[in-house]
Every structure is written in structure tokens, then in C-alpha cells.
Design a protein around this nucleic acid. Structure first.
Lengths: 212, 212
DNA sequence: TCAACAATTGACCAGTGGGACAATAAAAAG
DNA sequence: CTTTTTATTGTCCCACTGGTCAATTGTTGA
């Protein structure tokens, strides 16, 4: 009987202590390799080496290469999510929530060329990997939802939809720029760019409403 | 003597008739394979098969795989450039030139998921291929120059710079969206999005100037 | 007709990658 | 101290890839 209790406990704690630690190490190693080598050069052996283990162990924890990189994307995804959520928690007004989303997407230790390169490589595989597509879809849906809830009091639902699409595209585009020409856009520049976008669009929509 | 004349002629015409025709076929085949398979799955044999030739012929016309895909990117690049340039030729006012750049970047037979997927795959390799990086840089510089020349009369140089960066990022971001979730953004939506962006930013900058 | 030359092929090679597996070490459980 | 489970390694296999090369087949020019 105590076995069952112990097992249940293990399920929650110890599984997080042995197996899941390794899994996390490997996910992160996979991501690190992706940063340097791209999807074409990211091999199981390199991932294993980066994690200080053998290739065999990688396939012990992940069914295959695909699954490994799917988990790597989930991890990166979660990091970004947490960055936004943390800032969102401190926001009070709609404007503050908007800023939280924007700044969270350009956090200093995330908006960096290597990370961007890995992200790009994963995006490039989305069309050929159903799972990656779903992960990406969820990320985008959350971002959109955050934006819409913040825009709720600031613009008509129609305009909010529109602005939300623009903001997500603009953010992605600025990330892409960072990946294509590191140094061509700074964190501060990116944030200002998106904020100006929102301000301009809101002002315009407001003006329209007034004049209509 | 007539040999030389003939040779000179060949140089200009026949070289374009035999060798370069094959080269173009192969570049396009390479791009087509890239659309379906991504950079990781794009193999010389598949490219050859898609062009109805043998693998050997591909390496007869291109030193190696890298060179092949660099030329594929140049080709795609040129197509986009021509689309913009054609529209630019018809534009008279700065506003028309702005619209030309925007609409050219979302031309109906270009703004399509498969093409976008291939483009994404190439972008993902930019950090690891100096040549790709240069091609990309040239494309971006041209786009920026087109935008700046159009914005010249509409905003202060400072604002123009800023808006140009925003427009390029927004355009890239909308392409990315198309790649990540085909159907999530239509051609018309994309065009309107960028045009609204420009209008809003211009209005805001104008207002600032007035109020300042 | 013949020689030179370009196009094209298919065979071949060495290297690599993903993945299966059996063997072993290490822990946990009892 | 067993027994059972889990972690880990190294080896093996096979498909495949980029790339070389010699041989073959047109094509062109003299």
C-alpha cells in the first residue's frame, strides 16, 4: 500500500528529478545546436555531444529526431510565454497590458540573433511538421488573445482585430530582421517601432470614429 | 575571322540558348523542391529528378549544392524585384510609388504559401551562408531605397527612415504569417494592413510636426 | 569525314545520419 | 541480498548524400 503512495509521489516529484531533468537538458541542447547549425545541420550526435551524452540516450528519451525538436520548440515557446506573462501580471491598465506584451516579446535576453536563428529554422519546418504547426498556432493564438484583451477598451472590435494582426506581424517581422541582419535592429528600436505602430493606428481609428 | 564574330554572337545569344537555359531550369527545380521539402529535405537527386535530368548534370552546372541554392535565391529575388519595378514604372506621385512597392510585394502569383515556405527555408540558412546573406542584404537595401525615395516628400528624413524599417518588417511579418498559417492572411488583407500602417504613421508624424 | 567540344549519364565512393539493439551499469524495490 | 526497473553506452545496419570520374553521346566547326 505504501508503495502506491510512494509511486504517486514519485509520479509528481521524482519523475521530475531524474527523467525530466535529462529531457530538459536534451531539449535545451537540441535548441543550442539549432542555433549554430540550423535544421539541416542539427544532428542527433551533435545534440548528444552538446549535452555530454551519447546519441543512444537521446533516442531513449525521445522517440525520434522530430519529437526532440518538437519539444525544443515547446520549450522555447514556454520561455517566451513566461516572459510575457510575468510582465502582464504587473500591468493594470489596458495600455500597460499592451506594453507588457510588446516588451515581453523583445526581452533583452531573448531578442538575440542566435535564438532568432533557431526560431527561424523551426518556423521553416512548420509546413512539414503538423506538431510544430500546432505549437506555433497555440503561441500565436495566445499572443492574439493577449493583444485583443488589452485592445478591448481602446478600439472597436473590428479595429482591434486588425491592429492585433498588424502587431503580431510587425513583431515577427522585426525578429526576422534581427535574424537576417544581426545588428540592424536594436531591442529599443523594435519596441519603439511596435509602440509607435499601435499609437498611430489607435489615433487613426479614433479619428475615424469621431469623424464618422 | 567570321569565327570570332560568330563566337561573340554565341557569347551573347547561344550561351543563353543552351547552357543558361539549363541553368535556369535547374535553379527553378531547386526552388520547387525547396517549396515541398525544405532545406533539410532538398537533395541534389530530387532537384535533378524534378528537372528531368540526372544528378550529375546538376553538378555539371553548379559547383556544389550551396551554389545551386544561392542561385535559386537570386532567381526568386529577381522575380520579386521585377514585380516591384514593373509597378514602380507606372507610378507618378510619391503615394503611387509607395503603393507600387507594397502591392508588388504581395503580387497575386507570388504571395502564396509554397513560395513562402521556400523563402523561409532560405532565410533560415542566411546565418550560415555568407552569399545568401549578401543576396538578402541587397534585396533589403533595394526595398529600403525604394521606400525612402517615395517617402522623401511625405515625411522628415528621420521619420522616413523609421517608417521604412516598419514597412519592411511588417511586410516580412505578413509573409511569415502566410507561411506559418496559410489562409490566415489574404493578399488584400496584407496590402491593406501595410497601407493602413503607412497612413497612420504619416498622419501621426504630420501631427507631431504641426503641434511641435 | 573528322576532330574538338559540350552535354549527359551512370557507376562508384567515402562519409554520415537516423535508428535498432543487445549488453552493461546503476538504482530501486522488495 | 535478489529482483526488477531504469539509465547509458557502443556497436551495428542500412539508406542516402554530396561529390568525383570515366565513358558515352550528340553538336559544331573545319
Amino acid at each position: 500500500m505504501s508503495t502506491w503512495i510512494r509511486n504517486a509521489w514519485m509520479e509528481a516529484v521524482k519523475l521530475k528529478r531524474l527523467s525530466d531533468i535529462r529531457r530538459k537538458e536534451l531539449r535545451q541542447a537540441a535548441f543550442a545546436v539549432l542555433e549554430r547549425e540550423g535544421i539541416a545541420g542539427a544532428t542527433l550526435e551533435k545534440v548528444a555531444a552538446h549535452a555530454g551524452a551519447s546519441k543512444g540516450i537521446v533516442l531513449h528519451y525521445f522517440r525520434n529526431k522530430q519529437e526532440l525538436f518538437e519539444h525544443a520548440m515547446r520549450e522555447a515557446n514556454a520561455v517566451l510565454r513566461d516572459a510575457v506573462v510575468a510582465r502582464l501580471r504587473l500591468a493594470r491598465t489596458p495600455m500597460e497590458r499592451l506594453d507588457a506584451v510588446i516588451e515581453g516579446n523583445f526581452e533583452a535576453h531573448l531578442f538575440l540573433p542566435p535564438l532568432c536563428h533557431a526560431w527561424l529554422s523551426l518556423c521553416a519546418e512548420v509546413p512539414r511538421d503538423e506538431k510544430l504547426a500546432r505549437i506555433q498556432k497555440v503561441l500565436h493564438a495566445r499572443m492574439r488573445s493577449n493583444l485583443l484583451s488589452a485592445l478591448h477598451g481602446l478600439a472597436s472590435p473590428r479595429d482591434a482585430d486588425d491592429i492585433a494582426l498588424g502587431v503580431t506581424a510587425l513583431i515577427d517581422g522585426l525578429w526576422l530582421r534581427l535574424g537576417l541582419e544581426p545588428g540592424s535592429v536594436s531591442r529599443e528600436q523594435a519596441i519603439r517601432q511596435v509602440m509607435d505602430f499601435v499609437a498611430a493606428r489607435l489615433a487613426m481609428c479614433g479619428a475615424e470614429t469621431v469623424s464618422a
